[in-house]
């Protein structure tokens, strides 16, 4: 820090502090006013309500107008609000606005490292298929089996995708009727299901590997390869979490 130039001439040259390193510390003990703190808390709570409201609003718009918003809208809106909230916390609660600027520099350099980290990992994930085509696909659905179904010593070894194994086991245990009832209760109980069919909407016509009944039973892993037909739809969300930081 070259604060020596800013030091008043009347103070003269300080032998013990030739570069004026101690001069800027006058800001270290800034006392934030109570009103500012309460105000920042208020804004943070309002933005929390806003981010929830907008997420619900997007859902409503999609079902009311029967349109499918691109997935990046959800992520971009949520991350923008989160970034504003984080900036407020950093500036006023963590006092970056008032403290030695070197602290801010440390934090920003850390975020740059984070961005590089995300960028190169994304680059790798995106381009693996260029060299070794099999690596462009998803992993074997639900794992490749071979793990034990439970903690006891004599637990059965799962010989298929774990999700399939547990589903079949429960079906055998309770029968198809009760199974369907339980499934309905657990999917629509307290949280609205992400893919609840609400009638003839645009989204209903879309391929949904997640919820198409029966699809999963018959499917080989290849059937879930989402990078064939509609890869563009999924391309957006990946980049966005990075933008938030």
């Amino acid at each position: 820090m070259s604060n020596a130039h800013a030091a008043p001439a009347s103070h003269g040259f300080d032998e013990l502090d030739p570069h004026g390193a101690g001069k800027h510390t006058k800001h270290s003990h800034h006392i934030v006013s109570g009103v500012t703190l309460v105000g920042v808390l208020g804004i943070l709570l309002v933005f929390t309500a806003l981010t929830v409201g907008l997420a619900q609003g997007e859902k409503w718009v999609m079902s009311y107008f029967a349109i499918e918003l691109p997935r990046w809208v959800n992520v971009a809106v949520a991350m923008s609000i989160a970034t504003i909230k984080a900036t407020l916390v950093l500036m006023y609660f963590m006092l970056l606005r008032y403290s030695n600027p070197i602290n801010t520099i440390v934090f920003l350099v850390c975020l740059v490292a984070f961005a590089l980290f995300l960028f190169f990992t994304g680059l790798d994930i995106n381009n693996r298929g260029n060299i070794d085509p099999i690596k462009a696909n998803q992993i074997q659905a639900g794992g490749i089996g071979g793990i034990k179904a439970g903690w006891s010593k004599d637990a059965a070894v799962i010989d298929k995708a774990s999700v399939v194994y547990w589903r079949e086991r429960k079906l055998n245990e309770v029968g198809p009727e009760k199974f369907a009832k339980m499934k309905a209760a657990f999917s629509h109980g307290h949280a609205e299901h992400a893919h609840a069919d609400t009638g003839p909407t645009a989204s209903a016509a879309k391929v949904k590997s997640g919820t198409t009944p029966g699809l999963f039973d018959a499917a080989a892993p290849a059937a879930h390869d989402e990078h064939g037909g509609h890869a563009e739809d999924h391309a957006a969300p990946a980049a966005k979490p990075a933008a938030g930081h």
Binding site: Q138, I139, A141, G142, A149, G150, A161, S162, V163, V164, W166, R167, R169, K170, L171, F179, M182, K183, F186, S187, S209, G210, T211, T212, P213, F216, A219, P221, H224
Partner: peptide, 9 residues
């Protein structure tokens, strides 16, 4: 070990 998932992943 949840039995009612529709998604293999």
């Amino acid at each position: 070990s949840y039995a009612f998932s529709d998604n293999p992943f």
